[in-house]
């Protein structure tokens, strides 16, 4: 899995994931995600190029989401494909791992959270 990190506005980071979020990818993203989550920034995880996800990958996303939540920040998932989105629904984590379908929507979520 490839991971790329960039700025997303003045108080958020964008994490682009490419490939399958499986057991080996979960290890690869653990430290970068934890580092960003600990920086007290909002996070948008671009899932458009994630073509597979297993629970161990979801675990890393949840850990990051909970870390940012403790700092009153948000983590959102940008546009996962329908098969990946279905997996997220079936784990029952829709509330913690909010899905957005555009960067504008992500910004709106972050702005609402800042109020």
């Amino acid at each position: 899995m490839q991971i790329a990190i960039s700025e997303f506005g003045h108080d958020a980071k964008k994490v682009v994931l490419v490939g399958k979020l499986d057991i080996s990818a979960a290890q690869a993203i653990e430290l970068p995600l934890a580092t960003i989550a600990g920086s007290r920034a909002n996070i948008v995880v671009d899932m458009t190029a994630v073509d597979f996800i297993a629970s161990i990958g979801i675990r890393q996303l949840v850990l990051a989401a909970k870390t940012v939540s403790r700092a009153s920040r948000k983590l959102v998932l940008l546009d996962p494909n329908p098969l990946v989105a279905d997996v997220l629904v079936n784990t029952g984590l829709g509330e913690l791992l909010q899905v957005v379908h555009s960067e504008d929507e992500a910004r709106a979520v972050f702005s609402a959270g800042a109020m």
Binding site: A54, S55, I56, V87, T91, L93, L96
Partner: peptide, 10 residues
């Protein structure tokens, strides 16, 4: 929201 059981659920 805690890990554990998600795989089984899926």
């Amino acid at each position: 929201s805690e890990p554990g059981g998600w795989g089984l659920k899926l």
